[in-house]
Amino acid sequence: MMKIFRTAIHGQPAGPRRPMLAVIIAGFALSIALPYFGLLNKYVIFVLISVGINVILTISLNLVNGFMGEFSVGHAGFMAVGAYGAAVTSVNVIPRWMGAAAFPTAILAGGLAAALVSLFVAIPSFKTRGDYLAIVTLAFAMIVKSALENMDVLGGPRGFMGMQQFTTLPWVFFWMVLSLWAIRNFVYSAYGRGVLSIREDETASELSGVDTRKVKVLTFALSSFFAGVAGGLYAHLLQFINPSMFDVIKSTEMLIMVYLGGVGSIAGSILGASIYTILMEVLRPMGVWRMVLMPAVLILLMIFRPRGIMGLRELRWFVYKAIPHSGAAAKGQNIGNT
């Protein structure tokens, strides 16, 4: 059934890993230095922060859609839970004098809240697959949105505010690297083999000893954790959130970034999020027509290049040892039961 995923992916030889650490350190240093010395204006910093948040969203959606081969089309729901969780934590729970020092706690709280509600999607995914699961995820996002609109404590449809602007470039860079690192290592772990085997053939992977339920719960939890983290960062960037920010359009944007960059690819997620975010900024003068272009791009991608730019391929950088074809990955291992 899933013809597009039949390609082997992770067969590239080992690459040198040391430059990776150097790049991360350099990037982190730059993300502190550039704004500090006033080398970038506020608008450029804002765009860079958006790119970072979108990379986190894209890699988190890609884990479910690209690596596990399930359809989540309501990821904005997880983002909303994370945004509200983080915002409420930082406004109502953390004392104000703690300031930015407690910011990671707020973000963690948002991420954990999102990971917790991911059970609402993970448990139906045991029984339903394919387009029905897509509906479950979309319905989940709708429920989150309507529930938030009905909660007067959280401001209802008017939204929630009072957060300080804690989201800065270094913080976004940190969380972005963390999400990429965690998801990459997850995908290459024994559990990750299980994730890929679910994509290739769920029944076969179950027969070869993968505890598919456990793998699904874990994957959905990890994915929505980072979607929630992105939501928390977003909330502390704009200092205002309301339920209608996290509608189907937001989910559609995430899908575009995943399918533009490439399904099942870490490099593709970075590429897709960066290209899309910057393109949308460049096209800002187009006004409303920019929003017409967005879904049109998605439709054209689906018809002409459904796997995206880096679909099922990976930069050597993100691969650390030669791994046999993904079809054989689960063979002989007791994934998920250990």
Binding site: K3, V73, V288, M291, V292, I299
Partner: peptide, 27 residues
């Protein structure tokens, strides 16, 4: 064009067509 493609492509395309119609009307 997507009739032989995986179902996921069709679902995502349909979502895209919906958003396209909304935004086209809006524009």
């Amino acid at each position: 064009p997507l009739r032989g493609a995986p179902k996921m492509s069709a679902v995502i395309t349909a979502l895209g067509v919906g958003v396209l119609l909304e935004h086209l009307t809006l524009a």
